[in-house]
Design a protein around this nucleic acid. Structure first.
Lengths: 341, 341
DNA sequence: TTGAAAGCGCTAACAT
DNA sequence: ATGTTAGCGCTTTCAA
């Protein structure tokens, strides 16, 4: 009873019964007498007995722990997702173990090994930007551990997914730019080996087509970091045919694009309208505030956990499913055009 | 060998030796023959044997898991701390389990219970703004689990701590403003019931005294959110004696102050210099970039984990220690005064 | 209605 | 140099 924790043996000894009887009593087994059950419950209450999760795990082979791999915790979007994961996981009786891949393939592989060797019951992953070999994810599946991808998925692995409707979000963003009068919209695109990079570009292209604007390959530029924007955007502003709208694959890039535009002596949104992706706190603190496509990270986290727990507890046996979270175009200062439409 | 994982038994059976021999061989026990050791190692390699951490935990009573309780993950400062915690913990062979208290006392208490019942080896906590009863922390100590506070500490609990030197950070910030020529510096202050709110104000006051500037109570204004700044700062700018410097208790407030100053038709830093606290990503994306006091969250995380692991592994038996992380005044665009000094 | 025994994977004291 | 045994805390047949 000391050494920190009360065990089932302590209870049994005190009550003069066997450990197995205590165990059954606790589980409400039918063939334990009511009086025994009651005295066990009383003592459990009094001594604050809590079953040891480690012993439970050893028996059941389950840890009630969910592993999560994200590129970076220090990232508003991911921290909202994590927040959602955490909340629902705890409510469902699971714990959460985090690993950051720091956008490094090697660290991602290591994180997978770490989580597997920790015997987590399931794994949630948002893939790094640079991952192009997916064998470490296959290993998860070969071990029979449920795997759910969220946001940054790999299309090479057949598994459950929670994604944002990137294509539609991008379409809406570009549609908005067109609606406010932009005629020469540049897309600062993400890596095309990532689904989100591809989808957002596809949405951009589809919107242009839909509204009969010409598609110019010069207007699709690989640029998804602040550092790149710092180089790319000033180039853009020197073009003979200056862009009047920029749709960036993420908010940080969009913000830096705004800053560069201003540094080049132009105004946002008067000269160039800018729209980002992943509306977060950032979009509120810039001047002007940044129009952006809201991704509902918290919800993504919750849905991903729900899917994962369903798999772990085998609540269904459906083929892999993909849940699509709707995006929402949030118009703020960087694109509220005063120009006539 | 199937069912996912190879066990020591599988190895033993294959080699026709006993499990305990395998165990000893793996540990490099002196009285196992070299040839046996070699064949064990070979098979371990071939079959990818990994010891089951759960069985290890059951034996040792240790889980190699560290519990962390933070107010909010969605918070740049905390996410940097977590990042530091994560990195060092993993390098030291520990896993990390997170709980958010969401600034709620009840959730904090629940988080403590959760972590204790998970049998974590140690706990790191940054206390919520509202916690005034500390018995749940005492329970951690009574269970013999090492406890380390970081950033938001409780002075009622005798334990290891890692804190930021808020007072000196604030002093440096105000000193900087004075150095660049500010004569009328306003402090947008945090809640005075929180240690950080008080310390930062104290640093402000001390700096003014030290440089023989008058201390005006009108210049210390309770304002630590963007919403408040939106109301307070325009008032300030209407004063007969306009402030020429603002030292805000956090970056978000500082950023909104900048925005308000600009909205009132003044320039940053030409008319008013602004300095924040907790230099983060935010400070880079505003225009102008925000001068701020860097808190080194990542380092705080690492130091806290180091302290905790030392306690867990009983590397020393010193009385409770407090590590103070130095802050650093980072001068950026919002205070680079062109004025002569 | 209750208890004894085995076993989850691993280790360590104690044989051989 | 290697094997046997017991036990960490719990559950679950199976026997009483």
């Amino acid at each position: 009873m000391f050494k920190g924790q009360v065990t089932i043996k302590d209870i049994a000894k005190e009550l003069g019964i066997s450990p197995s009887t205590v165990s059954k009593a606790l589980k409400g087994h039918r063939d334990i007498s009511l009086s025994t059950k009651q005295s066990v419950r009383d003592l459990v209450e009094k001594w604050h007995y809590k079953p040891d999760p480690i012993a439970l795990s050893l028996k059941s082979g389950l840890t009630k722990i969910i592993g999560v791999i994200v590129p970076e915790i220090v990232h508003y979007f991911f921290s909202t997702v994590i927040s959602g994961i955490e909340d629902l996981a705890y409510d469902s009786g699971y714990h959460v173990m985090f690993c950051q891949s720091n956008e490094s393939y090697e660290r991602e592989v290591k994180a997978v090994e770490t989580l597997l060797s920790s015997r987590v019951d399931g794994i949630l992953v948002s893939v790094t930007k640079v991952t192009s070999d997916f064998n470490h994810f296959r290993k998860i599946q070969e071990n029979g551990i449920p795997l759910v991808f969220f946001d940054r998925i790999s299309s090479e692995i057949d598994t459950d997914r929670v994604v944002v409707d990137d294509e539609v979000g991008a379409f809406d963003a570009v549609k908005h730019l067109i609606n406010i009068g932009c005629k020469n919209i540049v897309h600062l695109a993400g890596p095309q080996n990532l689904q989100i990079g591809k989808s957002r570009k596809d949405g951009y292209v589809r919107a242009l087509k839909y509204f009969n604007q010409p598609i110019n390959n010069q207007n699709i530029i690989s640029c998804d970091t602040r550092e790149e924007a710092r180089i790319v955007v000033p180039e853009l502003m020197k073009r003979e045919k200056r862009p009047d709208g920029i749709f960036a694959v993420n908010d940080l890039t969009a913000v830096e694009a705004m800053n560069m535009i201003k540094e080049c002596g132009f105004k946002v949104p008067e000269d160039v309208s800018v729209v980002g992706f992943t509306s977060g706190m950032i979009s509120d603190i810039t001047t002007p505030t940044l129009s952006s496509v809201e991704q509902h990270g918290y919800l993504i986290g919750r849905e991903a956990v729900k899917l994962l727990i369903d798999r772990i507890e085998k609540k269904h046996n459906l083929p892999s499913q993909t849940i699509v979270i709707k995006t929402e175009m949030v118009v703020k200062g960087s694109s509220k055009s005063a120009r006539s439409i």
